[in-house]
Design a binder for these strands. Sequence first.
DNA 1: TAGCATTCTCGTACTTTGTACGATACCTTC
DNA 2: GAAGGTATCGTACAAAGTACGAGAATGCTA
Lengths: 209, 209
Amino acid sequence: MAIADDGGLAGLTIRSLAKSLETKPMSLYHYVRNKDEILDGIVDAIFNEIELPVPGGEWKAELKRRATSARKVLRRHPWAIALMESRTTPGMANLRHHDAVLGTLRSAGFSLALAAHTYALLDAYVYGSALQEASLPFDGPESLAEVAGPMVEMFSAGDYPHLREFALQHVLQPGYDFADEFDFGLDLILDGLAAHLPHPVGGIEAAEA
Amino acid sequence: MAIADDGGLAGLTIRSLAKSLETKPMSLYHYVRNKDEILDGIVDAIFNEIELPVPGGEWKAELKRRATSARKVLRRHPWAIALMESRTTPGMANLRHHDAVLGTLRSAGFSLALAAHTYALLDAYVYGSALQEASLPFDGPESLAEVAGPMVEMFSAGDYPHLREFALQHVLQPGYDFADEFDFGLDLILDGLAAHLPHPVGGIEAAEA
DNA sequence: TAGCATTCTCGTACTTTGTACGATACCTTC
DNA sequence: GAAGGTATCGTACAAAGTACGAGAATGCTA
Protein backbone atom coordinates (compact mmCIF):
# COMPACT_ATOMS: atom_id res chain seq x y z
CA MET A 1 0.00 0.00 0.00
CA ALA A 2 2.87 2.37 0.71
CA ILE A 3 4.21 1.69 -2.75
CA ALA A 4 0.85 2.34 -4.40
CA ASP A 5 0.40 5.46 -2.30
CA ASP A 6 3.36 7.12 -3.84
CA GLY A 7 3.70 5.49 -7.21
CA GLY A 8 0.12 4.78 -8.11
CA LEU A 9 -1.27 1.34 -8.66
CA ALA A 10 0.95 0.93 -11.71
CA GLY A 11 3.97 1.48 -9.50
CA LEU A 12 3.14 -1.60 -7.51
CA THR A 13 4.79 -4.41 -9.41
CA ILE A 14 6.15 -7.68 -8.17
CA ARG A 15 9.59 -6.30 -8.80
CA SER A 16 9.02 -3.03 -6.96
CA LEU A 17 7.40 -4.84 -4.07
CA ALA A 18 10.30 -7.26 -3.85
CA LYS A 19 12.78 -4.41 -3.89
CA SER A 20 11.01 -2.59 -1.08
CA LEU A 21 11.04 -5.81 0.94
CA GLU A 22 14.72 -6.24 0.16
CA THR A 23 14.26 -9.54 -1.56
CA LYS A 24 13.91 -10.84 -5.09
CA PRO A 25 10.73 -11.04 -7.16
CA MET A 26 10.35 -14.79 -7.16
CA SER A 27 10.70 -15.04 -3.42
CA LEU A 28 7.30 -13.50 -3.01
CA TYR A 29 5.70 -16.42 -4.77
CA HIS A 30 6.41 -18.63 -1.87
CA TYR A 31 3.97 -16.71 0.28
CA VAL A 32 1.44 -15.79 -2.33
CA ARG A 33 -0.11 -17.64 -5.19
CA ASN A 34 -0.04 -14.72 -7.58
CA LYS A 35 -0.35 -10.98 -7.75
CA ASP A 36 -4.13 -11.08 -7.57
CA GLU A 37 -3.89 -12.59 -4.14
CA ILE A 38 -1.81 -9.62 -3.03
CA LEU A 39 -4.37 -7.25 -4.48
CA ASP A 40 -7.21 -9.05 -2.73
CA GLY A 41 -5.33 -8.69 0.50
CA ILE A 42 -4.83 -5.00 -0.07
CA VAL A 43 -8.53 -4.45 -0.66
CA ASP A 44 -9.32 -6.14 2.60
CA ALA A 45 -6.70 -4.05 4.34
CA ILE A 46 -8.44 -0.98 2.99
CA PHE A 47 -11.69 -2.14 4.53
CA ASN A 48 -9.88 -2.55 7.79
CA GLU A 49 -8.96 1.11 7.76
CA ILE A 50 -12.58 2.20 7.57
CA GLU A 51 -14.24 2.88 10.92
CA LEU A 52 -17.05 0.53 11.76
CA PRO A 53 -20.31 1.83 13.17
CA VAL A 54 -20.60 1.32 16.91
CA PRO A 55 -23.39 -1.19 17.67
CA GLY A 56 -25.41 0.81 20.18
CA GLY A 57 -25.11 4.24 18.56
CA GLU A 58 -27.67 6.45 16.91
CA TRP A 59 -27.96 5.18 13.35
CA LYS A 60 -27.65 8.46 11.52
CA ALA A 61 -24.53 9.51 13.35
CA GLU A 62 -23.00 6.08 12.98
CA LEU A 63 -23.65 5.87 9.27
CA LYS A 64 -22.30 9.34 8.79
CA ARG A 65 -19.16 8.50 10.67
CA ARG A 66 -18.63 5.39 8.63
CA ALA A 67 -19.26 7.16 5.35
CA THR A 68 -16.93 9.99 6.26
CA SER A 69 -14.26 7.56 7.32
CA ALA A 70 -14.61 5.54 4.14
CA ARG A 71 -14.26 8.63 2.06
CA LYS A 72 -11.20 9.73 3.97
CA VAL A 73 -9.59 6.35 3.45
CA LEU A 74 -10.33 6.38 -0.25
CA ARG A 75 -8.91 9.86 -0.52
CA ARG A 76 -5.74 8.69 1.14
CA HIS A 77 -5.53 5.73 -1.25
CA PRO A 78 -7.14 6.89 -4.48
CA TRP A 79 -5.82 3.90 -6.38
CA ALA A 80 -7.92 1.64 -4.16
CA ILE A 81 -11.13 2.49 -5.96
CA ALA A 82 -9.99 0.97 -9.21
CA LEU A 83 -8.80 -2.05 -7.29
CA MET A 84 -12.08 -2.62 -5.54
CA GLU A 85 -13.91 -2.76 -8.79
CA SER A 86 -11.73 -5.45 -10.23
CA ARG A 87 -11.73 -7.85 -7.26
CA THR A 88 -14.80 -9.96 -6.72
CA THR A 89 -13.90 -12.23 -3.81
CA PRO A 90 -14.68 -10.36 -0.60
CA GLY A 91 -12.28 -10.72 2.30
CA MET A 92 -13.00 -11.02 5.97
CA ALA A 93 -12.72 -7.34 6.77
CA ASN A 94 -15.14 -6.66 3.97
CA LEU A 95 -17.69 -9.10 5.33
CA ARG A 96 -17.24 -7.90 8.90
CA HIS A 97 -17.78 -4.40 7.66
CA HIS A 98 -21.01 -5.19 5.87
CA ASP A 99 -22.24 -7.13 8.83
CA ALA A 100 -21.65 -4.24 11.21
CA VAL A 101 -23.47 -1.77 9.02
CA LEU A 102 -26.41 -4.10 8.58
CA GLY A 103 -26.48 -4.60 12.32
CA THR A 104 -26.70 -0.88 12.94
CA LEU A 105 -29.52 -0.53 10.45
CA ARG A 106 -31.51 -3.46 11.75
CA SER A 107 -31.35 -2.41 15.37
CA ALA A 108 -32.45 1.06 14.36
CA GLY A 109 -35.64 -0.45 13.03
CA PHE A 110 -34.84 -0.70 9.34
CA SER A 111 -36.72 -3.49 7.61
CA LEU A 112 -34.64 -5.87 5.54
CA ALA A 113 -35.88 -4.21 2.39
CA LEU A 114 -35.10 -0.74 3.63
CA ALA A 115 -31.71 -1.89 4.87
CA ALA A 116 -30.95 -3.18 1.39
CA HIS A 117 -31.99 0.11 -0.16
CA THR A 118 -29.96 2.02 2.35
CA TYR A 119 -26.85 -0.02 1.92
CA ALA A 120 -26.95 0.17 -1.83
CA LEU A 121 -27.62 3.88 -1.79
CA LEU A 122 -25.04 4.88 0.76
CA ASP A 123 -22.30 2.75 -0.66
CA ALA A 124 -22.98 3.90 -4.17
CA TYR A 125 -22.73 7.46 -2.98
CA VAL A 126 -19.54 6.99 -1.02
CA TYR A 127 -17.74 5.09 -3.74
CA GLY A 128 -19.10 7.37 -6.41
CA SER A 129 -17.88 10.43 -4.57
CA ALA A 130 -14.48 8.90 -4.15
CA LEU A 131 -14.42 7.96 -7.81
CA GLN A 132 -15.37 11.48 -8.75
CA GLU A 133 -12.71 13.06 -6.64
CA ALA A 134 -10.09 10.66 -7.82
CA SER A 135 -10.80 11.42 -11.45
CA LEU A 136 -10.71 15.16 -11.05
CA PRO A 137 -7.65 16.57 -12.75
CA PHE A 138 -6.90 18.76 -9.76
CA ASP A 139 -6.29 18.13 -6.13
CA GLY A 140 -7.64 20.64 -3.64
CA PRO A 141 -8.90 24.17 -4.12
CA GLU A 142 -5.52 25.70 -4.98
CA SER A 143 -4.71 23.61 -8.01
CA LEU A 144 -8.33 23.79 -9.13
CA ALA A 145 -7.78 27.32 -10.42
CA GLU A 146 -4.60 26.31 -12.20
CA VAL A 147 -6.37 23.60 -14.11
CA ALA A 148 -9.86 24.99 -14.60
CA GLY A 149 -8.83 28.54 -15.48
CA PRO A 150 -6.96 27.75 -18.71
CA MET A 151 -9.57 25.17 -19.60
CA VAL A 152 -12.41 27.65 -19.46
CA GLU A 153 -10.38 30.07 -21.58
CA MET A 154 -10.32 27.45 -24.29
CA PHE A 155 -14.08 27.35 -24.62
CA SER A 156 -14.64 29.40 -27.74
CA ALA A 157 -17.26 31.98 -26.87
CA GLY A 158 -20.51 30.19 -27.64
CA ASP A 159 -19.64 26.63 -26.63
CA TYR A 160 -20.71 25.27 -23.30
CA PRO A 161 -22.29 28.46 -21.97
CA HIS A 162 -23.60 26.90 -18.79
CA LEU A 163 -20.34 25.19 -18.03
CA ARG A 164 -18.58 28.47 -18.54
CA GLU A 165 -20.90 30.39 -16.24
CA PHE A 166 -20.65 27.63 -13.70
CA ALA A 167 -16.89 27.60 -13.74
CA LEU A 168 -16.36 31.35 -13.71
CA GLN A 169 -19.04 32.37 -11.27
CA HIS A 170 -19.05 29.48 -8.87
CA VAL A 171 -16.24 26.97 -9.05
CA LEU A 172 -13.46 29.51 -9.54
CA GLN A 173 -14.76 31.84 -6.86
CA PRO A 174 -12.67 31.98 -3.71
CA GLY A 175 -13.96 29.73 -1.00
CA TYR A 176 -15.24 26.99 -3.25
CA ASP A 177 -13.95 23.57 -2.37
CA PHE A 178 -15.23 20.54 -4.16
CA ALA A 179 -14.56 18.44 -1.09
CA ASP A 180 -17.42 20.23 0.67
CA GLU A 181 -19.93 18.75 -1.75
CA PHE A 182 -19.72 15.42 -0.02
CA ASP A 183 -21.49 16.43 3.17
CA PHE A 184 -24.40 18.02 1.38
CA GLY A 185 -25.22 14.81 -0.44
CA LEU A 186 -24.63 12.65 2.58
CA ASP A 187 -27.01 14.66 4.73
CA LEU A 188 -29.62 14.76 2.03
CA ILE A 189 -29.49 11.00 1.71
CA LEU A 190 -29.60 10.35 5.43
CA ASP A 191 -32.53 12.70 5.91
CA GLY A 192 -34.32 11.05 3.04
CA LEU A 193 -33.81 7.68 4.62
CA ALA A 194 -35.09 8.86 7.96
CA ALA A 195 -38.36 9.73 6.29
CA HIS A 196 -38.74 6.12 5.23
CA LEU A 197 -38.52 4.78 8.74
CA PRO A 198 -41.69 3.65 10.52
CA HIS A 199 -41.19 6.17 13.36
CA PRO A 200 -40.37 9.22 11.25
CA VAL A 201 -38.57 11.35 13.78
CA GLY A 202 -38.74 8.76 16.49
CA GLY A 203 -37.81 8.63 20.14
CA ILE A 204 -34.18 8.46 21.09
CA GLU A 205 -34.24 4.71 21.15
CA ALA A 206 -36.66 1.83 21.69
CA ALA A 207 -37.56 0.98 18.16
CA GLU A 208 -37.01 -2.75 18.08
CA ALA A 209 -38.49 -5.59 20.08
CA MET B 1 -15.40 -0.90 -27.57
CA ALA B 2 -16.64 -4.11 -29.13
CA ILE B 3 -13.37 -5.76 -28.18
CA ALA B 4 -13.59 -4.53 -24.59
CA ASP B 5 -17.23 -5.59 -24.41
CA ASP B 6 -16.39 -9.18 -24.91
CA GLY B 7 -12.87 -9.50 -23.63
CA GLY B 8 -12.76 -6.97 -20.86
CA LEU B 9 -10.54 -3.96 -20.84
CA ALA B 10 -7.50 -6.20 -20.66
CA GLY B 11 -8.54 -7.80 -23.92
CA LEU B 12 -8.18 -4.52 -25.71
CA THR B 13 -4.55 -4.40 -26.72
CA ILE B 14 -2.92 -2.69 -29.64
CA ARG B 15 -2.42 -6.09 -31.17
CA SER B 16 -6.01 -7.26 -30.69
CA LEU B 17 -7.32 -3.99 -32.01
CA ALA B 18 -5.09 -4.22 -35.06
CA LYS B 19 -6.20 -7.75 -35.72
CA SER B 20 -9.87 -6.82 -35.56
CA LEU B 21 -9.19 -4.00 -38.00
CA GLU B 22 -7.31 -6.42 -40.20
CA THR B 23 -4.09 -4.52 -40.07
CA LYS B 24 -0.85 -4.64 -38.13
CA PRO B 25 -0.16 -3.13 -34.71
CA MET B 26 2.15 -0.37 -35.80
CA SER B 27 -0.22 0.85 -38.47
CA LEU B 28 -2.49 2.21 -35.78
CA TYR B 29 0.19 4.60 -34.67
CA HIS B 30 -0.24 6.58 -37.82
CA TYR B 31 -3.69 7.67 -36.70
CA VAL B 32 -3.14 7.85 -32.99
CA ARG B 33 -0.33 9.12 -30.83
CA ASN B 34 -0.52 6.31 -28.32
CA LYS B 35 -2.90 3.96 -26.60
CA ASP B 36 -4.02 6.58 -24.12
CA GLU B 37 -5.41 8.62 -26.98
CA ILE B 38 -7.53 5.66 -27.97
CA LEU B 39 -8.77 5.25 -24.43
CA ASP B 40 -9.62 8.95 -24.17
CA GLY B 41 -11.60 8.58 -27.35
CA ILE B 42 -13.47 5.62 -25.98
CA VAL B 43 -14.43 7.50 -22.84
CA ASP B 44 -15.84 10.28 -24.92
CA ALA B 45 -17.70 7.78 -27.06
CA ILE B 46 -19.24 6.41 -23.88
CA PHE B 47 -20.48 9.87 -22.99
CA ASN B 48 -21.99 10.10 -26.42
CA GLU B 49 -24.10 7.06 -25.72
CA ILE B 50 -25.71 8.66 -22.69
CA GLU B 51 -28.97 10.48 -23.35
CA LEU B 52 -28.80 14.21 -22.76
CA PRO B 53 -31.57 15.98 -20.90
CA VAL B 54 -33.92 17.83 -23.20
CA PRO B 55 -33.60 21.61 -22.63
CA GLY B 56 -37.24 22.49 -22.07
CA GLY B 57 -38.28 19.44 -20.04
CA GLU B 58 -39.31 19.08 -16.45
CA TRP B 59 -36.07 18.85 -14.49
CA LYS B 60 -36.85 15.82 -12.40
CA ALA B 61 -37.92 13.72 -15.32
CA GLU B 62 -34.98 14.85 -17.39
CA LEU B 63 -32.44 14.11 -14.70
CA LYS B 64 -34.00 10.75 -14.09
CA ARG B 65 -33.87 9.90 -17.75
CA ARG B 66 -30.26 10.91 -17.97
CA ALA B 67 -29.29 8.96 -14.87
CA THR B 68 -31.12 5.88 -16.04
CA SER B 69 -29.50 6.12 -19.43
CA ALA B 70 -26.05 6.56 -17.93
CA ARG B 71 -26.54 3.53 -15.79
CA LYS B 72 -27.71 1.47 -18.70
CA VAL B 73 -24.67 2.47 -20.72
CA LEU B 74 -22.31 1.62 -17.89
CA ARG B 75 -24.00 -1.72 -17.45
CA ARG B 76 -23.48 -2.44 -21.10
CA HIS B 77 -19.82 -1.46 -20.84
CA PRO B 78 -18.77 -2.29 -17.30
CA TRP B 79 -15.10 -1.84 -18.12
CA ALA B 80 -15.78 1.82 -18.86
CA ILE B 81 -15.98 2.75 -15.21
CA ALA B 82 -12.38 1.87 -14.54
CA LEU B 83 -11.42 3.75 -17.67
CA MET B 84 -13.20 6.91 -16.67
CA GLU B 85 -11.36 7.04 -13.42
CA SER B 86 -7.97 6.92 -15.02
CA ARG B 87 -8.47 9.54 -17.76
CA THR B 88 -8.33 13.16 -16.71
CA THR B 89 -8.63 15.10 -19.95
CA PRO B 90 -12.33 15.48 -20.71
CA GLY B 91 -13.44 15.17 -24.32
CA MET B 92 -16.04 17.16 -26.20
CA ALA B 93 -18.93 14.81 -25.54
CA ASN B 94 -18.09 14.94 -21.87
CA LEU B 95 -18.17 18.73 -21.82
CA ARG B 96 -21.32 18.89 -23.89
CA HIS B 97 -22.90 16.49 -21.49
CA HIS B 98 -22.05 18.50 -18.41
CA ASP B 99 -23.18 21.65 -20.10
CA ALA B 100 -26.58 20.20 -20.93
CA VAL B 101 -27.21 18.98 -17.42
CA LEU B 102 -26.20 22.31 -15.94
CA GLY B 103 -28.50 24.02 -18.41
CA THR B 104 -31.41 21.90 -17.29
CA LEU B 105 -30.72 22.64 -13.65
CA ARG B 106 -30.27 26.36 -14.12
CA SER B 107 -33.45 26.84 -16.10
CA ALA B 108 -35.34 24.90 -13.46
CA GLY B 109 -34.33 27.52 -10.96
CA PHE B 110 -31.35 25.86 -9.31
CA SER B 111 -28.83 28.33 -7.93
CA LEU B 112 -25.23 27.82 -8.94
CA ALA B 113 -24.48 26.42 -5.53
CA LEU B 114 -27.41 24.03 -5.60
CA ALA B 115 -26.56 23.01 -9.13
CA ALA B 116 -23.08 22.13 -7.96
CA HIS B 117 -24.43 20.08 -5.10
CA THR B 118 -26.87 18.38 -7.39
CA TYR B 119 -24.34 17.53 -10.01
CA ALA B 120 -21.88 16.13 -7.55
CA LEU B 121 -24.54 14.12 -5.78
CA LEU B 122 -26.24 12.67 -8.81
CA ASP B 123 -23.05 11.77 -10.60
CA ALA B 124 -21.57 10.22 -7.52
CA TYR B 125 -24.68 8.11 -7.17
CA VAL B 126 -24.82 7.01 -10.78
CA TYR B 127 -21.15 6.13 -11.02
CA GLY B 128 -21.18 4.57 -7.61
CA SER B 129 -24.13 2.38 -8.50
CA ALA B 130 -22.44 1.32 -11.68
CA LEU B 131 -19.26 0.59 -9.77
CA GLN B 132 -21.19 -1.46 -7.27
CA GLU B 133 -22.94 -3.51 -9.87
CA ALA B 134 -19.79 -4.05 -11.83
CA SER B 135 -17.98 -5.39 -8.80
CA LEU B 136 -20.69 -7.79 -7.77
CA PRO B 137 -19.57 -11.34 -8.34
CA PHE B 138 -22.87 -12.22 -9.94
CA ASP B 139 -24.82 -10.90 -12.87
CA GLY B 140 -28.58 -10.80 -12.59
CA PRO B 141 -30.97 -12.47 -10.17
CA GLU B 142 -30.41 -16.01 -11.45
CA SER B 143 -26.70 -16.23 -10.87
CA LEU B 144 -27.07 -14.40 -7.57
CA ALA B 145 -28.33 -17.55 -5.91
CA GLU B 146 -25.52 -19.60 -7.40
CA VAL B 147 -22.90 -17.32 -5.92
CA ALA B 148 -24.48 -16.14 -2.69
CA GLY B 149 -25.88 -19.47 -1.59
CA PRO B 150 -22.60 -21.34 -1.18
CA MET B 151 -21.02 -18.23 0.26
CA VAL B 152 -23.56 -17.97 3.05
CA GLU B 153 -23.07 -21.66 3.79
CA MET B 154 -19.44 -20.92 4.51
CA PHE B 155 -20.21 -18.51 7.32
CA SER B 156 -19.53 -20.62 10.34
CA ALA B 157 -22.59 -20.32 12.55
CA GLY B 158 -21.81 -17.27 14.65
CA ASP B 159 -19.94 -15.11 12.16
CA TYR B 160 -21.67 -12.30 10.38
CA PRO B 161 -25.15 -12.93 11.78
CA HIS B 162 -26.73 -9.89 10.18
CA LEU B 163 -25.20 -10.62 6.82
CA ARG B 164 -26.52 -14.14 7.10
CA GLU B 165 -30.03 -13.05 7.96
CA PHE B 166 -29.91 -10.47 5.22
CA ALA B 167 -28.80 -12.95 2.61
CA LEU B 168 -31.13 -15.76 3.55
CA GLN B 169 -34.26 -13.79 4.27
CA HIS B 170 -34.04 -11.03 1.76
CA VAL B 171 -31.46 -11.28 -0.98
CA LEU B 172 -32.00 -14.94 -1.71
CA GLN B 173 -35.78 -14.67 -1.65
CA PRO B 174 -37.46 -15.01 -5.01
CA GLY B 175 -38.24 -11.70 -6.60
CA TYR B 176 -35.23 -9.85 -5.28
CA ASP B 177 -33.21 -8.12 -7.95
CA PHE B 178 -30.33 -5.91 -7.00
CA ALA B 179 -30.89 -3.86 -10.12
CA ASP B 180 -34.10 -2.53 -8.59
CA GLU B 181 -32.16 -0.78 -5.86
CA PHE B 182 -31.11 1.91 -8.26
CA ASP B 183 -34.49 3.54 -8.65
CA PHE B 184 -35.13 3.76 -4.95
CA GLY B 185 -31.99 5.79 -4.38
CA LEU B 186 -32.50 7.90 -7.44
CA ASP B 187 -36.00 8.90 -6.40
CA LEU B 188 -34.92 9.58 -2.87
CA ILE B 189 -32.20 11.89 -4.10
CA LEU B 190 -34.40 13.71 -6.58
CA ASP B 191 -37.10 14.24 -3.98
CA GLY B 192 -34.53 15.50 -1.54
CA LEU B 193 -33.26 17.96 -4.10
CA ALA B 194 -36.75 19.21 -4.86
CA ALA B 195 -37.10 20.18 -1.22
CA HIS B 196 -34.08 22.46 -1.61
CA LEU B 197 -35.60 24.44 -4.44
CA PRO B 198 -37.04 27.91 -3.77
CA HIS B 199 -40.49 26.89 -5.11
CA PRO B 200 -40.85 23.56 -3.29
CA VAL B 201 -43.46 21.91 -5.44
CA GLY B 202 -43.65 24.67 -7.99
CA GLY B 203 -45.90 25.41 -10.92
CA ILE B 204 -45.55 23.38 -14.06
CA GLU B 205 -43.16 25.86 -15.56
CA ALA B 206 -42.32 29.55 -15.40
CA ALA B 207 -39.47 29.50 -12.95
CA GLU B 208 -36.84 31.52 -14.76
CA ALA B 209 -36.87 34.94 -16.37
C1' DT C 1 24.88 -35.89 16.17
C1' DA C 2 23.78 -37.52 11.45
C1' DG C 3 20.50 -37.74 8.01
C1' DC C 4 16.56 -36.37 5.90
C1' DA C 5 12.60 -33.51 4.78
C1' DT C 6 10.48 -29.45 4.58
C1' DT C 7 10.60 -24.60 3.90
C1' DC C 8 12.35 -20.74 1.71
C1' DT C 9 15.17 -18.20 -1.81
C1' DC C 10 16.13 -16.79 -6.27
C1' DG C 11 18.66 -17.21 -11.22
C1' DT C 12 17.06 -17.90 -15.68
C1' DA C 13 13.95 -17.54 -19.16
C1' DC C 14 9.45 -17.26 -21.57
C1' DT C 15 5.25 -14.54 -22.71
C1' DT C 16 2.62 -10.46 -23.34
C1' DT C 17 2.39 -5.73 -23.44
C1' DG C 18 3.31 -0.76 -25.51
C1' DT C 19 5.84 1.47 -28.80
C1' DA C 20 10.53 3.54 -31.01
C1' DC C 21 12.84 3.34 -35.36
C1' DG C 22 13.28 3.23 -39.97
C1' DA C 23 12.35 1.01 -44.40
C1' DT C 24 9.02 0.40 -47.84
C1' DA C 25 4.88 1.01 -50.66
C1' DC C 26 1.36 4.03 -52.39
C1' DC C 27 -0.80 8.24 -54.12
C1' DT C 28 -1.18 12.68 -55.52
C1' DT C 29 0.48 16.91 -58.10
C1' DC C 30 3.17 19.22 -61.12
C1' DG D 1 7.74 10.55 -64.82
C1' DA D 2 9.80 12.80 -60.70
C1' DA D 3 8.98 14.56 -55.94
C1' DG D 4 7.14 14.47 -51.74
C1' DG D 5 3.88 13.58 -48.66
C1' DT D 6 0.83 9.74 -46.62
C1' DA D 7 0.22 5.27 -44.98
C1' DT D 8 1.91 0.56 -43.79
C1' DC D 9 4.46 -2.50 -41.13
C1' DG D 10 8.92 -5.67 -39.91
C1' DT D 11 12.02 -5.70 -36.30
C1' DA D 12 13.32 -4.98 -31.83
C1' DC D 13 13.47 -3.37 -27.04
C1' DA D 14 11.84 -2.60 -22.26
C1' DA D 15 8.91 -3.73 -18.57
C1' DA D 16 5.51 -6.80 -16.65
C1' DG D 17 3.90 -11.47 -14.55
C1' DT D 18 5.42 -15.78 -13.52
C1' DA D 19 6.84 -21.12 -14.68
C1' DC D 20 10.61 -24.05 -13.61
C1' DG D 21 13.83 -25.98 -10.95
C1' DA D 22 18.31 -25.62 -8.46
C1' DG D 23 20.18 -24.48 -4.36
C1' DA D 24 20.38 -22.89 0.69
C1' DA D 25 18.51 -22.79 5.26
C1' DT D 26 16.05 -24.76 8.82
C1' DG D 27 13.97 -28.08 11.69
C1' DC D 28 12.78 -32.94 13.07
C1' DT D 29 13.61 -37.59 13.88
C1' DA D 30 16.45 -41.64 15.05
